[in-house]
Design a protein around this nucleic acid. Sequence first.
DNA 1: CTCAATGCAAATCATTTGCACACCC
DNA 2: GGGTGTGCAAATGATTTGCATTGAG
Lengths: 163, 163
Amino acid sequence: MAKKKVKKNSSLEIIKEVLRLYLLNNGFRNTPERYTILEEIYQLEHHFNVDDLYLIMIQKKYHVSKATIYNTIEIFLDAGLIRKHQFSEKLSSSASYEKSYFDKQHDHLVIYKNNTDKEIEEIIEFCDPRIQGIKEAIENAFGVQIDSHSLYFYGIRKSNETN
Amino acid sequence: MAKKKVKKNSSLEIIKEVLRLYLLNNGFRNTPERYTILEEIYQLEHHFNVDDLYLIMIQKKYHVSKATIYNTIEIFLDAGLIRKHQFSEKLSSSASYEKSYFDKQHDHLVIYKNNTDKEIEEIIEFCDPRIQGIKEAIENAFGVQIDSHSLYFYGIRKSNETN
DNA sequence: CTCAATGCAAATCATTTGCACACCC
DNA sequence: GGGTGTGCAAATGATTTGCATTGAG
């Protein structure tokens, strides 16, 4: 446990330095809130939404508002420190986020419990290199520079897998 | 113009028959609203959102409510008569839809005017068969049956393409 | 007739905005 | 000090819901 903490702290320092440089280069201020929120996000192992993060920080007695979290997340997105996802096909549901700095780009397989109400059973991450080939083909075909992509597969578990 | 209209009408008949069967098989009623909304959607050549469709129908003096459009669209989605998209990365923006019955599945390249405010300049449809290979790989790797996918590329036009 | 479907208006809820105060630069 | 960033509360806007009425089966 102690070992793990040391490791986490050192990556946290890197991340905070990335943020520091980003803020500097873009004329934003070095507010403590931004670092605190970044720390909390990088301690999370799973996807989270703004409300999750807000509740966690309130429980930890931080004085923070959702508005600030929303603002800050926007900065982190632009800085490439986190990624945004919309897993549920319902538009009314909230966006999910995940730390992204040490990860390689990956895509998601959304497994529904069944095909009728589309309740999510599990979200699996995967990484298929063929997507790069498609990306390059599209870049050449349409004369664009592609900066990001999102790929989701939606399905259900095969019946012989349930037991 | 006249020719085109004849062609449209005959495909409309097919589509309406598809709806009729879907409603029958699923115990839903044959309301005139459902057919009217379907006709309007299949006369649209581009992506639309609920508000677009509502305004078009109001202009054409139809007596229809947004609630009914939302309900009906849900049915059409399930029937495979339309597809839903969320082009803007802003969650607060509305969902887009498009007729799907005569199309082959395709994906989208979202071209931003620039990388800062992410205003959409154009949305291009494409169809790369390699996505099928990825899909099958994922199905086998995780023992799932994939029913749909969504793939978006986001980018900007290359500078030498603007003039 | 009965109950699903409609239109209307009010409710919801994630996100955004306005504003007064705080504090980074 | 000046203006950006914050917390708070109110506003927004797409979608959903409640309910009385309508009309399909």
